[in-house]
Simulated scan of single mutants.
Amino acid sequence: MAKVKYYYDAETLSYRKIKRKKRTTFKYIVVFLLAAALFGFLSFAISSNYIESPKERQLTRELQNMELQYQLLDKRMDDAIAALENVEERDNAIYRLYFESNPIPEEQRRAGFGGINRYKKFEGFDNSQMIAESNKRLDILEKAIVVQSKSLDEIAKLAEDKEKFLEAIPAIQPVSNESLTRMASGYGYRTDPFTKVRKFHFGMDFTAPRGTPIYATGDGVVKRADNGSSGFGNHIRIDHGYGYMSLYAHLYKYNVKVNQRVKRGDVIGFVGSTGRSEAPHLHYEVHKDGERINPINFYYGNLSAAEFNVLLRKASLENQSLD
């Protein structure tokens, strides 16, 4: 029951009951409803995160900073992937092509990760997809770097082998131009000096004075230094590896021994006329996998283009050989 309020009336010298006007009552009701509505709105706003607490504002800033950092990380990964792709392109199109090695397939370079979900731990968060995708790209990038690193190790090994191959392959003229009298006979059909019959000549004859130095045309190991082969007289055979062997015949004397390792340009013997020979000269052959091939293709190491053309022209003449 509402309390009854009175006021003192000085004219009548008595207490009179206070009567509340309807207008005043309505005003109180409106004020109460507005206050209730405002309280309800504030409560809803707080519960619905419309108004952030200081802690929530700090977490929001940290989240925004994290999103920015992931965007920057994605940009750096884009740059790293672009740089890696450039190396991969050169690896396949230049390095491996030069060393005659098969390119690495793209599916091997960009292979994903099968089996269990490696990114399950990132699920259930507001930015789960962004975080999982960044980690996935990073994993693939790391794997591609490992593949490329192993490829470069292989390229380095191929380069080392290539260097050894280039040092071993016969690549210079066995007698220097300054010492030559002439290039007497080339590879191909020639007239035999003794029988005068046309037959195949499997080497090149370089005429030079007796005692002229003879040079190893590539790195290798001396396999023979004797006169036990019919027609060659004193001769040397060098095994260069990779299926190559060079032969030097009709020597005056040796400057090496069997099983001795020699380098390209080492003096291995001296020009003579031993064996089946008409005059002092060097008979020179190059063998590949047991087959005798034209030595004219193996003088790129010490002849200019002009000198090689002169030698090629003389070697192509079908004349008489000296052995």
Rank of each mutant, 00 (worst) to 15 (best):
A2R: 11
K5M: 02
D9A: 08
T12C: 08
L13Q: 14
S14K: 12
Y15T: 05
R23K: 13
F26M: 11
I29A: 07
A36L: 14
L38F: 09
F39V: 10
F41D: 02
F44T: 09
I46T: 04
N49M: 01
Y50Q: 11
I51N: 00
L59D: 04
T60G: 08
R61S: 15
E62S: 04
L68S: 14
K75Y: 08
R76G: 01
A83V: 10
L84I: 12
L84W: 10
N92G: 05
I94P: 01
R96D: 03
R96V: 07
Y98L: 14
S101G: 03
Q108D: 15
R109E: 00
R110P: 06
F113G: 09
F113D: 07
G114T: 06
N117G: 04
Y119C: 09
K121Y: 07
E123P: 02
G124V: 04
F125W: 13
S128G: 10
S128W: 04
Q129L: 14
Q129S: 14
I131S: 06
A132L: 03
A132N: 01
E133L: 08
I140T: 11
I140M: 09
A144Y: 02
L152T: 03
A159C: 08
E163P: 00
F165L: 11
L166N: 12
E167W: 05
P170C: 03
P170Y: 00
P170T: 09
A171S: 15
I172Q: 09
P174F: 01
V175R: 03
G186Y: 07
Y187F: 15
T191D: 08
T191E: 10
D192L: 07
D192V: 13
F194V: 11
F194A: 09
F194I: 11
R198D: 03
K199N: 11
K199A: 09
H201D: 04
F202H: 15
G203R: 11
D205Y: 04
F206S: 00
R210K: 15
I214W: 08
Y215M: 03
D219A: 13
D219E: 08
G220V: 05
K223L: 07
R224H: 12
D226M: 04
G228D: 13
G233I: 02
N234H: 13
R237V: 15
R237T: 15
G241M: 01
G241C: 02
G243W: 13
Y244I: 05
M245G: 08
S246D: 04
Y248F: 13
H250A: 11
L251A: 14
K257Q: 15
N259L: 14
Q260W: 06
K263Q: 12
R264M: 08
R264D: 00
I268G: 05
V271R: 01
G272N: 02
G272C: 03
S273H: 01
T274E: 06
E285H: 01
E291K: 13
P295H: 07
F298G: 05
Y299H: 08
N302I: 06
L303E: 06
A305W: 00
A305C: 00
L311H: 04
A315H: 10
L317R: 12
N319G: 14
